[in-house]
Simulated assay, not measured.
Amino acid sequence: MPSSSSVPSSSSSASPVPSPSPSSRDSVVAALRAAGCVFAEDEAELILTAARTPDEAAALVARRAAGAPLELVVGWAEFRGLRIAVEPGVFVPRRRTEFLVEQALALAPGAAVVVDLCCGSGAVGAALAAGLGPVELHAADIDPVAVRCARRNVAAAGGQVHTGDLFEALPAALRGRVDILAANVPYVPSGEIGLLPAEARDHEPLTALDGGADGLDVVRRVAEEAPRWLAPGGCVLVETGRQQAPAAVDAFERGGLTTRLAVSEEGYAHVVTGVRP
């Protein structure tokens, strides 16, 4: 979950805008480099494409130079080929979480009912719907700002977004019917929040980052309650850290789920999956 997110790809479709002059592009690149942006040229292209006027471009560059995540500056993040709208106060989807989506699609390619719990921007739910085709999609988050943002991103899939604490937010009619329950829960130990990159620490909600003393408070709650919501053969998936993975697996097993750990070394991703027998 938390980590520096990648630069959005400039290949995503968007309304074209006039190309900026070379001099303005050079000045933006120089300002971003001075601010320590490693991918200054790519970021400049995205900022200048997002800006409608020179004044707006200057404002966006100033926000990025001040440390705001690029995705929040330009208003979107790329996730599994989708352009996901993001806004200030919303957790920015990480590219490594694409691995969670891949695992879910492999486990339940015929899923009809999908839940994106701790949905943030709704990126996971939107990506699952895109991969599965028509589904009954529900997303939920405790943060009203995230709920508002997620509604924008799951609207094309006909998704419903609910506000509340984990399963309390979901319609009771979903009990025993969910084929895929994806929960991109917070899992950073409370004592390590201060070690996160400033982009996450200063610009994303604490509720999307802080997983309690050992980072597994929310994971345990999901593992305990998920079986009541899953359909027979349905699966629940959470992302976790490398060191926490064994304890997360244990929590899933104690919940009566058939459990395994999937690891993407390339993507630095650890996903615990549990299937209801």
Rank of each mutant, 00 (worst) to 15 (best):
A111F: 01
G256K: 01
L32R: 02
A198D: 14
R254E: 13
E136M: 07
V275N: 00
A183L: 05
F39L: 08
E225W: 00
A251V: 07
F167E: 09
T240H: 12
A62L: 10
P232R: 09
L105T: 08
E265C: 11
R52P: 00
A66S: 15
E45F: 03
V271C: 10
A34F: 06
D141H: 05
A127M: 12
G36Q: 02
R242G: 09
A156Y: 11
I180S: 00
G120N: 12
P227K: 08
S5P: 03
G212V: 05
T49M: 08
G89M: 06
S19E: 13
H162G: 01
R83A: 14
L132H: 02
S13K: 07
P20T: 01
Q244Y: 09
P246M: 14
L70E: 00
V161W: 06
P232G: 03
R201A: 13
V147Y: 06
N153Y: 11
A31L: 01
Y187N: 10
S24L: 09
P205D: 11
A247N: 10
A112N: 07
V90M: 13
G67V: 04
G131T: 04
G159R: 09
P186K: 09
Q103W: 05
I84F: 10
P88S: 05
V161Q: 10
G234V: 00
P109D: 04
V222Y: 06
Q243S: 15
G255W: 15
G89V: 06
S10F: 04
E253Y: 06
S4M: 14
P22Y: 09
E224L: 14
S13L: 12
R151A: 14
E98N: 04
A226H: 08
A213G: 05
A111Y: 02
R254D: 05
S264I: 10
T259C: 13
G133P: 05
V178R: 05
A31C: 00
G110A: 07
V38P: 02
A123Y: 06
G256S: 11
L137V: 00
D26R: 15
L82M: 12
V115P: 09
F252K: 14
A59D: 06
G67F: 00
P54Q: 04
V236F: 09
A14R: 13
P8F: 05
S10P: 03
V61W: 04
C118Y: 09
A35T: 00
A65Y: 13
G274H: 11
A150P: 11
T240C: 14
V90A: 06
A213S: 10
A65L: 13
G81V: 08
L100W: 10
G211A: 11
A50R: 09
T259Y: 08
W76V: 11
E266D: 15
A172N: 03
R228P: 00
A34V: 03
P205V: 05
C37W: 02
A62F: 07
P2F: 12
P232Y: 01
P197T: 02
A182K: 02
